[in-house]
Design a binder for these strands. Structure first.
Lengths: 135, 135
DNA sequence: CTTTACCCTGTACTGTGGTACAGGGTTTAT
DNA sequence: ATAAACCCTGTACCACAGTACAGGGTAAAG
């Protein structure tokens, strides 16, 4: 299946300007073009854009995502120093998982108490992350 | 313990402009002032700023953090519609935890393969998040 | 054969979350 | 009593990640 830019944009829930922007900053490789210069995208681009978007939601910057995609593209420029990058990221991700679990519990408790204003106001919020080390 | 703005900034690893900015946008309530107008912060501010910073790293916007702090401040303006806000956030957080665990595994595998270029280039990257539903 | 709906490049503008002065007051150390 | 090191307000500027035109070409439906 081949896509024009706005078909791809639609499929991925982004807008076409975003796709051109991703191409410009190197997150997408230049797609093939029709004779009249229209971009033609493949199925792979769909997966790639969805990956970029999800990674972004998970807290990765476009620069970091680009680095990871360097592996997909077998680009040894972007793969330089990959090991250290990955080691640091693993740690970051693990700490995020740990803290998000605390937030999850805090929010579940809060949700339960919400219907009653007094109880709600007594929910611990700031304390959630102060625990210091792990659980 | 009382802090001048740059002492607080130091303790929290932010700069003073950020603290003033947080005050301006309502994340910190106006602190008490000395006779000459200097801000004096309490220990609570330390915890509060650290909370804000960590929540931000975890993907919450300042607007969302402000809403949660509405509970701490017992501000029923910011607490309006809290229940729905919390319900949505719980779901988001749970999906983030799920996907971060997948990323964690992907990165751990990648780390192991990194020393060898060929193996590294064969690591699944985009596929990590394509699984669709849970594991 | 022209209207409608696409596409292109390029540049300007936006929102979020700060960061960096400028211009001026205060406090402490010498 | 004056320099150094703080503080204040206010405004301008920054990076990131888009978003929105402007000006112009293409394609296909009526």
């Amino acid at each position: 299946m081949k896509y024009l830019i706005s078909e791809l944009a639609n499929k991925c829930n982004v807008n076409k300007e975003t796709i051109r922007y991703y191409e410009k900053v190197g997150l997408l490789r230049p797609p093939t073009r029709t004779d009249s210069g229209y971009r033609m995208f493949s199925e792979d681009s769909v997966k790639r854009i969805k990956f970029i978007k999800r990674m972004q939601d998970l807290g990765f910057t476009l620069a970091e995502i680009s680095k990871l995609l360097g592996i997909v593209d077998k680009d040894n420029q972007r793969c330089e120093d990959m090991y250290n990058f990955v080691v640091n990221k693993v740690e970051e991700v693990q700490l995020k998982i740990r803290d998000l679990k605390r937030i999850e519990q805090m929010l579940i408790n809060l949700k339960e108490k919400c219907p009653n204003e007094k109880f709600m106001y007594e929910c611990p919020i700031i304390e959630t992350l102060v625990v210091g080390n792990d659980t």
